[in-house]
Protein backbone atom coordinates (compact mmCIF):
# COMPACT_ATOMS: atom_id res chain seq x y z
CA UNK A 1 0.00 0.00 0.00
CA UNK A 2 2.90 2.39 0.61
CA UNK A 3 3.98 2.32 -3.03
CA UNK A 4 0.78 4.12 -3.92
CA UNK A 5 2.13 7.22 -2.27
CA UNK A 6 4.77 7.49 -4.95
CA UNK A 7 2.28 7.72 -7.78
CA UNK A 8 2.45 11.02 -9.54
CA UNK A 9 -1.16 11.18 -10.61
CA UNK A 10 -2.79 13.61 -8.24
CA UNK A 11 -6.22 11.98 -8.48
CA UNK A 12 -4.80 8.57 -7.67
CA UNK A 13 -3.14 10.09 -4.65
CA UNK A 14 -6.33 11.65 -3.50
CA UNK A 15 -8.05 8.32 -3.89
CA UNK A 16 -5.37 6.58 -1.89
CA UNK A 17 -5.57 9.08 0.94
CA UNK A 18 -9.31 8.70 0.91
CA UNK A 19 -9.04 4.91 1.15
CA UNK A 20 -6.61 5.17 4.02
CA UNK A 21 -8.66 7.75 5.84
CA UNK A 22 -11.65 5.45 5.42
CA UNK A 23 -9.74 2.62 7.05
CA UNK A 24 -8.57 4.91 9.85
CA UNK A 25 -12.12 6.09 10.53
CA UNK A 26 -13.34 2.47 10.53
CA UNK A 27 -10.62 1.53 13.06
CA UNK A 28 -11.63 4.35 15.37
CA UNK A 29 -15.23 3.18 14.91
CA UNK A 30 -14.20 -0.37 15.85
CA UNK A 31 -12.43 0.86 19.00
CA UNK A 32 -15.54 2.76 20.05
CA UNK A 33 -18.07 0.09 19.21
CA UNK A 34 -16.29 -2.80 20.87
CA UNK A 35 -15.67 -0.89 24.09
CA UNK A 36 -19.23 0.49 24.04
CA UNK A 37 -20.53 -3.05 23.61
CA UNK A 38 -18.53 -4.30 26.59
CA UNK A 39 -19.73 -1.42 28.76
CA UNK A 40 -23.33 -2.05 27.71
CA UNK A 41 -23.02 -5.53 29.20
CA UNK A 42 -23.14 -3.86 32.63
CA UNK A 43 -26.83 -3.05 32.17
CA UNK A 44 -28.70 -4.47 35.19
CA UNK A 45 -25.39 -5.82 36.56
CA UNK A 46 -23.96 -2.74 38.28
CA UNK A 47 -23.13 -2.58 42.01
CA UNK A 48 -26.03 -0.13 42.51
CA UNK A 49 -28.61 1.63 40.40
CA UNK A 50 -26.70 4.91 40.02
CA UNK A 51 -23.79 2.98 38.50
CA UNK A 52 -26.07 1.22 36.03
CA UNK A 53 -27.04 4.67 34.82
CA UNK A 54 -23.50 6.04 34.73
CA UNK A 55 -22.12 2.99 32.92
CA UNK A 56 -25.00 3.17 30.44
CA UNK A 57 -24.08 6.79 29.76
CA UNK A 58 -20.49 5.94 28.96
CA UNK A 59 -21.57 2.99 26.80
CA UNK A 60 -23.94 5.28 24.90
CA UNK A 61 -21.18 7.81 24.29
CA UNK A 62 -19.02 5.10 22.74
CA UNK A 63 -21.79 3.64 20.59
CA UNK A 64 -22.53 7.18 19.44
CA UNK A 65 -18.86 7.72 18.62
CA UNK A 66 -18.78 4.47 16.64
CA UNK A 67 -21.79 5.63 14.63
CA UNK A 68 -20.08 8.92 13.73
CA UNK A 69 -16.83 7.26 12.65
CA UNK A 70 -18.58 4.51 10.66
CA UNK A 71 -20.94 6.98 9.00
CA UNK A 72 -17.94 8.98 7.86
CA UNK A 73 -16.17 5.81 6.67
CA UNK A 74 -19.31 4.87 4.72
CA UNK A 75 -19.44 8.32 3.20
CA UNK A 76 -15.83 7.99 2.05
CA UNK A 77 -16.58 4.55 0.61
CA UNK A 78 -19.31 6.23 -1.43
CA UNK A 79 -20.88 2.95 -2.52
CA UNK A 80 -24.14 3.16 -0.62
CA UNK A 81 -22.76 1.44 2.46
CA UNK A 82 -23.96 2.55 5.90
CA UNK A 83 -22.70 2.50 9.47
CA UNK A 84 -24.47 -0.84 9.94
CA UNK A 85 -22.48 -2.49 7.13
CA UNK A 86 -19.34 -1.71 9.09
CA UNK A 87 -20.73 -2.96 12.41
CA UNK A 88 -22.69 -6.00 11.30
CA UNK A 89 -21.32 -7.31 8.04
CA UNK A 90 -17.61 -7.47 8.60
CA UNK A 91 -15.93 -10.55 10.02
CA UNK A 92 -13.71 -10.90 13.03
CA UNK A 93 -10.48 -10.60 10.97
CA UNK A 94 -11.66 -7.32 9.46
CA UNK A 95 -12.17 -5.61 12.81
CA UNK A 96 -9.10 -3.59 13.77
CA UNK A 97 -9.82 -2.46 17.32
CA UNK A 98 -7.17 -2.67 20.02
CA UNK A 99 -7.21 -5.95 21.96
CA UNK A 100 -7.61 -4.15 25.28
CA UNK A 101 -11.12 -3.10 24.29
CA UNK A 102 -12.44 -6.56 23.42
CA UNK A 103 -11.48 -8.27 26.68
CA UNK A 104 -14.58 -9.51 28.56
CA UNK A 105 -16.06 -6.99 30.96
CA UNK A 106 -14.66 -8.76 34.03
CA UNK A 107 -15.47 -7.45 37.49
CA UNK A 108 -15.99 -3.80 38.42
CA UNK A 109 -12.26 -3.33 39.16
CA UNK A 110 -11.34 -4.67 35.72
CA UNK A 111 -13.77 -2.28 34.07
CA UNK A 112 -12.50 0.71 36.05
CA UNK A 113 -8.83 -0.04 35.34
CA UNK A 114 -9.53 -0.50 31.63
CA UNK A 115 -11.44 2.79 31.62
CA UNK A 116 -8.59 4.51 33.45
CA UNK A 117 -6.07 3.51 30.78
CA UNK A 118 -8.49 4.32 27.96
CA UNK A 119 -9.76 7.61 29.35
CA UNK A 120 -6.31 9.06 30.01
CA UNK A 121 -5.30 7.87 26.53
CA UNK A 122 -8.35 9.34 24.84
CA UNK A 123 -7.95 12.63 26.67
CA UNK A 124 -4.61 13.11 24.87
CA UNK A 125 -5.60 11.34 21.68
CA UNK A 126 -8.75 13.37 21.09
CA UNK A 127 -7.03 16.62 22.01
CA UNK A 128 -4.65 15.91 19.11
CA UNK A 129 -7.35 14.53 16.81
CA UNK A 130 -9.23 17.82 17.07
CA UNK A 131 -6.36 19.24 15.01
CA UNK A 132 -6.69 16.66 12.25
CA UNK A 133 -6.71 18.35 8.86
CA UNK A 134 -9.67 16.15 7.97
CA UNK A 135 -12.53 18.40 9.12
CA UNK A 136 -15.00 15.52 9.67
CA UNK A 137 -12.61 13.63 11.91
CA UNK A 138 -11.73 16.83 13.77
CA UNK A 139 -15.43 17.51 14.38
CA UNK A 140 -16.06 14.03 15.78
CA UNK A 141 -13.01 14.46 18.03
CA UNK A 142 -14.32 17.76 19.37
CA UNK A 143 -17.65 16.25 20.37
CA UNK A 144 -16.04 13.12 21.81
CA UNK A 145 -13.43 14.95 23.83
CA UNK A 146 -16.07 16.65 25.98
CA UNK A 147 -17.48 13.22 26.86
CA UNK A 148 -14.05 11.76 27.60
CA UNK A 149 -13.19 14.52 30.03
CA UNK A 150 -16.27 13.62 32.04
CA UNK A 151 -15.49 9.89 31.80
CA UNK A 152 -11.99 10.50 33.10
CA UNK A 153 -13.21 12.41 36.16
CA UNK A 154 -15.50 9.55 37.05
CA UNK A 155 -12.89 6.87 36.44
CA UNK A 156 -10.29 8.71 38.51
CA UNK A 157 -12.74 8.98 41.41
CA UNK A 158 -13.50 5.26 41.24
CA UNK A 159 -9.80 4.38 41.06
CA UNK A 160 -9.22 6.31 44.28
CA UNK A 161 -12.23 4.78 46.04
CA UNK A 162 -11.33 1.22 45.08
CA UNK A 163 -7.58 1.62 45.62
CA UNK A 164 -7.94 3.19 49.07
CA UNK A 165 -11.25 1.57 50.12
CA UNK A 166 -10.79 -1.93 51.57
CA UNK A 167 -8.16 -4.68 51.40
CA UNK A 168 -10.48 -6.59 49.10
CA UNK A 169 -10.98 -3.71 46.67
CA UNK A 170 -7.25 -2.98 46.69
CA UNK A 171 -6.49 -6.62 45.87
CA UNK A 172 -8.99 -6.60 43.01
CA UNK A 173 -7.56 -3.38 41.59
CA UNK A 174 -4.01 -4.74 41.85
CA UNK A 175 -5.04 -7.87 39.98
CA UNK A 176 -6.83 -5.86 37.29
CA UNK A 177 -3.81 -3.58 36.79
CA UNK A 178 -1.56 -6.61 36.27
CA UNK A 179 -4.06 -8.43 34.05
CA UNK A 180 -4.53 -5.45 31.74
CA UNK A 181 -1.13 -3.76 31.60
CA UNK A 182 0.29 -5.93 28.82
CA UNK A 183 -2.49 -4.85 26.48
CA UNK A 184 -1.69 -1.14 26.73
CA UNK A 185 1.55 -1.14 24.71
CA UNK A 186 0.01 -1.47 21.28
CA UNK A 187 -1.96 1.74 21.86
CA UNK A 188 1.28 3.61 21.24
CA UNK A 189 2.55 1.72 18.21
CA UNK A 190 1.15 3.13 14.96
CA UNK A 191 1.40 0.82 11.94
CA UNK A 192 2.41 1.81 8.40
CA UNK A 193 -1.04 3.09 7.50
CA UNK A 194 -1.23 5.30 10.57
CA UNK A 195 2.30 6.60 10.08
CA UNK A 196 1.39 7.72 6.56
CA UNK A 197 -1.72 9.42 7.81
CA UNK A 198 0.25 11.05 10.63
CA UNK A 199 2.58 12.52 8.02
CA UNK A 200 -0.41 13.83 6.10
CA UNK A 201 -1.80 15.47 9.23
CA UNK A 202 -4.92 13.27 9.31
CA UNK A 203 -4.05 10.87 12.12
CA UNK A 204 -2.64 11.32 15.62
CA UNK A 205 0.83 10.12 16.60
CA UNK A 206 0.31 8.47 20.00
CA UNK A 207 4.07 8.09 20.51
CA UNK A 208 4.17 11.80 21.21
CA UNK A 209 2.08 11.54 24.36
CA UNK A 210 3.15 8.14 25.68
CA UNK A 211 5.32 9.69 28.40
CA UNK A 212 2.54 12.03 29.47
CA UNK A 213 0.07 9.14 29.53
CA UNK A 214 2.44 7.10 31.65
CA UNK A 215 2.97 10.01 34.00
CA UNK A 216 -0.77 10.66 34.45
CA UNK A 217 -1.63 7.00 34.92
CA UNK A 218 1.18 6.64 37.43
CA UNK A 219 0.06 9.72 39.36
CA UNK A 220 -3.52 8.45 39.69
CA UNK A 221 -2.39 4.92 40.60
CA UNK A 222 -0.09 6.24 43.32
CA UNK A 223 -2.72 8.62 44.57
CA UNK A 224 -4.97 5.57 44.86
CA UNK A 225 -2.22 3.95 46.98
CA UNK A 226 -1.71 1.25 44.38
CA UNK A 227 1.49 0.05 42.72
CA UNK A 228 2.30 0.38 39.04
CA UNK A 229 2.08 -3.06 37.41
CA UNK A 230 5.42 -4.70 36.73
CA UNK A 231 4.12 -7.19 34.17
CA UNK A 232 6.75 -7.59 31.47
CA UNK A 233 4.56 -9.29 28.87
CA UNK A 234 2.89 -7.49 25.98
CA UNK A 235 0.23 -8.70 23.56
CA UNK A 236 -0.25 -6.95 20.23
CA UNK A 237 -2.20 -7.34 17.02
CA UNK A 238 -5.54 -5.50 17.08
CA UNK A 239 -4.73 -3.21 14.16
CA UNK A 240 -3.86 -6.28 12.05
CA UNK A 241 -7.03 -8.15 12.95
CA UNK A 242 -4.97 -10.54 15.11
CA UNK A 243 -7.47 -10.78 17.96
CA UNK A 244 -8.03 -12.66 21.20
CA UNK A 245 -10.64 -15.42 21.20
CA UNK A 246 -13.11 -13.07 22.82
CA UNK A 247 -13.85 -10.89 19.80
CA UNK A 248 -15.44 -13.55 17.61
CA UNK A 249 -17.85 -14.45 20.41
CA UNK A 250 -18.74 -10.81 20.89
CA UNK A 251 -19.38 -10.38 17.16
CA UNK A 252 -21.40 -13.59 16.94
CA UNK A 253 -23.79 -12.23 19.53
CA UNK A 254 -23.82 -8.68 18.20
CA UNK A 255 -24.37 -9.58 14.54
CA UNK A 256 -26.75 -12.52 14.99
CA UNK A 257 -30.11 -10.84 14.33
CA UNK A 258 -28.85 -8.54 11.61
CA UNK A 259 -27.24 -11.40 9.69
CA UNK A 260 -30.23 -13.72 10.05
CA UNK A 261 -32.27 -11.29 7.94
CA UNK A 262 -30.10 -10.20 5.00
CA UNK A 263 -31.13 -6.87 3.52
CA UNK A 264 -33.84 -6.24 6.10
CA UNK A 265 -34.27 -2.81 7.63
CA UNK A 266 -34.89 -2.24 11.32
Amino acid sequence: MSTNMAKSNQYDNEDTVKQKTLQYAARLGDDSLILGHRLSEWTSNGPFLEEDIAMGNVALDYVGRARMFYTYAAELAGNGKTEDDFAYLRDERQFQNYLLLELPRGDFAFTIVRQLFVDVYNDYFLTELKNSNDPEIAAIATKSHKETRYHLRRTRDWTLRLGIGTDESKAKMTKALNDIWGYTHELFEPDALEIELIELGVAVDPRLFKEKWLHDVQTIIHEAELEMPDADWAVRGGRNGFHTEHLSMLLTVMQSVHRAHPGASW
Binding site: H37, T43, I53, L60, H258
Partner: peptide, 26 residues
Protein backbone atom coordinates in the same frame (compact mmCIF):
# COMPACT_ATOMS: atom_id res chain seq x y z
CA UNK B 1 -31.31 -7.60 23.64
CA UNK B 2 -28.95 -4.61 23.88
CA UNK B 3 -25.99 -6.71 22.74
CA UNK B 4 -28.01 -8.12 19.82
CA UNK B 5 -29.93 -5.04 18.63
CA UNK B 6 -29.96 -5.36 14.83
CA UNK B 7 -28.78 -1.83 13.97
CA UNK B 8 -26.55 0.70 15.70
CA UNK B 9 -29.40 3.16 15.93
CA UNK B 10 -31.59 0.56 17.66
CA UNK B 11 -28.74 -0.35 19.97
CA UNK B 12 -28.27 3.27 21.04
CA UNK B 13 -32.00 3.87 21.50
CA UNK B 14 -32.52 0.68 23.50
CA UNK B 15 -29.52 1.42 25.68
CA UNK B 16 -30.91 4.89 26.39
CA UNK B 17 -34.31 3.42 27.12
CA UNK B 18 -33.09 0.84 29.60
CA UNK B 19 -30.99 3.53 31.23
CA UNK B 20 -34.17 5.59 31.64
CA UNK B 21 -35.81 2.64 33.39
CA UNK B 22 -32.97 2.64 35.92
CA UNK B 23 -33.60 6.36 36.38
CA UNK B 24 -37.31 5.74 36.95
CA UNK B 25 -36.43 3.09 39.50
CA UNK B 26 -34.32 5.70 41.29
Amino acid sequence: WITRAPSLRRKAVLLAKVQDEAGHGL
